[in-house]
Amino acid sequence: MIQHLVDGVLVGAIYALGAIGLTMVMHMLRFANFSHAELLSVGAYVALVFDKLFGALAPVLTAKIGPLSMSFALALAVLVSMAVTAATAVLIDKLVFKRIRERGEELSMVFASFGVALIVRNLIGLAFGLGTTLYNSDIAFAMVLSTDPLILVRPDQIFTLSAALVLMVVLHLVLSRTTFGYALRAVAENASLAQVAGVNLRRIVIAVWVIGGALAAAAGVFYALTNQITPMIGRDLLMPVFAATIVGGIGSIYGAALGGFLVGLAANLALVVLPSGYAPSMPFLIILAVLTLRPHGLLGVARA
């Protein structure tokens, strides 16, 4: 039971990172982006490539950081991956979503995002193989937090949780303390009015994709680090991440962060009573519960 709680919080942090980016895109560009979770896969694989590259260029970097299974090379690769994934998100927008958006068809964007997800996921499968892999094949030993009840936590999980929290605090500071943050929130409130006040809408849209892509990359690497790397990361995390945005209320960044943790907790706690085979159904049940009890989410506002 307590182990489920701990696991729920740990995986919840990853959902939260994915959901923050997704909810920003859904709020600013007004469409449910089904290809967002594929950015997590992109992030995980880009980090894998650069991890190997840095390790080969400077073998000293392959040393592990403290008790983590993460090496210095991978830590650098995560930063590169966040930049590359952010660029990928901007590129996909330029190639596909922007053109459809300019014709003013919101529903077609949802449609297109499914097509993009299908293309990205299977191109990753073609490029890297359909099997699973790991950043590091050494066995990561779990730390015993307590023996009765037995609670096990791996150092990597503690690291990903802390790193995720740091990213969220940084984002919070950027949004609440900088001019750019004000501009972004102004566009979210009222795009036309923000433009009148001199906010460059095109730049804000790019910024949303950059933030969403970078957070997705971090989430993808963290998920891959604590589980494994497969081309199906996007498919498997799509529903939990969507559930987190709905729990928090579509458009609410803080709601998405909270929603991520709640979905992680709820999905893990449900497995106390249900067989683990039903895990993929949990996000949908959570969505149904939220839509029944509080359709606009915990922190969301009704919007037409």
């Binding site: 529903l107 969507f242 159904s281 949908f284 359709p295 919007r303």
Partner: peptide
């Protein structure tokens, strides 16, 4: 549950139904 809300909700919920149906 979803048709009164923004269109995103129907898209997400119906996709979720398909995932859940296959899973069940």
């Amino acid at each position: 549950l979803t048709l009164k809300l923004r269109h995103d909700y129907l898209a997400i919920a119906t996709f979720g139904v398909a995932v859940t149906f296959e899973n069940v």
